[in-house]
C-alpha cells in the first residue's frame, strides 16, 4: 500500500494562496497563487533572486510565510514544522551527512520515523537499488563521485515516500555530460513512482525538457504557468518570451509580437508568406544540427534558425518570411 494512493484523487496536491515572504525590505515571494496536481513534474523556473528557491523552502517549511496559505494534500501547513510535513527535499548541495555512510544516510529518515529495523533495512536496500548504489552502501559521502552523491540524496528523500519530492536545482552540481543522463533518469523515476515532483531550476532547457508544467517567476511573482509547449509557443509577456528559448520581439501597431527564430523562413528569393522582409546576413553560425543567423533588416536585427545550410555567406542579401500565425502577441 503506497501512501500516495491514499490521498484524494481529485484536487491539487499543492495549493498556494496569496503566499508572501519578505526578507527585510526585499519581498522574495510576492502574493503567489499556485496549484500543482498529483503526479506532476512541476518546475519553478526563473533567474537568480526571482523567489523560486524561497517558494520551495516555504513548501518544505524552512521559511514561514508572512501572508497567505499553503496547503499540501488539502491540509493547511501553517505552523507545521519541516519535520512533520509530508514532503522531502533534495538539496542543491545534497546535504549528505558526512559522518554517516550511504546506507545510514538513506536510513536516517526512517530511523527518525521509528520504522522497524527490519523494514527500514529492506526499504533502504530497495531505495539504493532504485538509484543503482547497492554496492556503495558502506561508503562515506566523501568517497563518492558527484553523480553518486546526487543519487544518495535522491534515495534518502524517496525512501521516506513523501507526497511531494522537492528538488532544488537537482542537476546544477553535475557536469554537463552527467546532467543529460540524470535528467532522463529523474523523469523516468518520477513516471515510475507516479510521485509529484516540484523542482527549482534556473535552466529553461532543463525545465522545458523535464517538466509536465512549469511556472516562470520574476521578482517574486509568477509570470506564467503552463505546459512547456504553452509557455514556449504562447509566452504571456516579453519577459517570458525572452527568458524561454530565443525570441525575436517585434513591435507592431497593436503591441508586441514574439517570433521564434525557427518560425522564420530564409530564402534568396522573396517568398509568398504573409510577412516578408529583406535583410542582410550579419553573422552566421553552423551548429551541426542547425544553422543560426543574425540578419539585419530595415527595423531590427532578427535571429533565424534553419536546418543546417552551408550555402549562405556573411553579407549575402536574403529574404525573410513568416506565416500570419507564426508570431505570438504579448501582453506587455
Amino acid at each position: 500500500m503506497d501512501r500516495r494512493e491514499d490521498g484524494p484523487v481529485s484536487g491539487p496536491i499543492v495549493r498556494i494562496e496569496g503566499l508572501t515572504k519578505r526578507f527585510g525590505a526585499v519581498t522574495a515571494v510576492d502574493d503567489v497563487d499556485l496549484e500543482v496536481a498529483p503526479g506532476e513534474l512541476f518546475a519553478l523556473l526563473g533567474g537568480s533572486g526571482c523567489g523560486k528557491t524561497t517558494l520551495l523552502r516555504l513548501l518544505a517549511g524552512f521559511e514561514t510565510p508572512d501572508a497567505g496559505r499553503l496547503l499540501i494534500d488539502g491540509q493547511d501547513m501553517t505552523g507545521v514544522p519541516p519535520h512533520l510535513r509530508p514532503v522531502n527535499m533534495m538539496f542543491q548541495s545534497y546535504a549528505l551527512f558526512p559522518h554517516m555512510n550511504v546506507a545510514e544516510n538513506v536510513g536516517y529518515g526512517l530511523r527518525r520515523e521509528g520504522v522497524a529495523k527490519a523494514e527500514a533495512t529492506t526499504r533502504v536496500a530497495d531505495a539504493l537499488e532504485q538509484v543503482r548504489l547497492t554496492e556503495y552502501a558502506q561508503r562515506r559521502p566523501a568517497q563518492l563521485s558527484g553523480g553518486q552523491r546526487q543519487r544518495v540524496a535522491l534515495a534518502r528523500a524517496l525512501v521516506k515516500r513523501p507526497k511531494i519530492l522537492l528538488l532544488d536545482e537537482p542537476l546544477a552540481a553535475l557536469d554537463r555530460k552527467l546532467r543529460e543522463g540524470t535528467r532522463f533518469e529523474l523523469v523516468r523515476l518520477q513516471a515510475e513512482l507516479g510521485l509529484t515532483f516540484v523542482m527549482v531550476t534556473h535552466d529553461q532547457q532543463e525545465a522545458m525538457s523535464m517538466a509536465t508544467r512549469l511556472a516562470v517567476m520574476n521578482a517574486g511573482r509568477i509570470v506564467q504557468v503552463g505546459s512547456p509547449r504553452e509557455v514556449y509557443e504562447r509566452p504571456a509577456t516579453r519577459f517570458v518570451a525572452d527568458f524561454i528559448g530565443v525570441a525575436n520581439i517585434l513591435k507592431t501597431e497593436d503591441g508586441w509580437l514574439a517570433l521564434r527564430p525557427e518560425k522564420i523562413a530564409l530564402s534568396v528569393e522573396r517568398s509568398g508568406l504573409a510577412n516578408v522582409v529583406a535583410g542582410k546576413i550579419v553573422d552566421l553560425a553552423y551548429e551541426g544540427d542547425r544553422s543560426l543567423y543574425r540578419i539585419a533588416t530595415d527595423g531590427a536585427v532578427l535571429i533565424v534558425s534553419t536546418a543546417p545550410n552551408l550555402a549562405h555567406r556573411r553579407g549575402d542579401s536574403v529574404w525573410l518570411g513568416w506565416a500570419a500565425d507564426a508570431g505570438h502577441p504579448l501582453d506587455a
Partner: peptide, 13 residues
C-alpha cells in the same frame, strides 16, 4: 553546514 540540519529536519528529525 546548516543545510545538514535542514536536511535532518526535512527527514523528520
Amino acid at each position: 553546514d546548516m543545510s545538514l540540519l535542514e536536511a535532518a529536519a526535512d527527514l523528520g528529525a
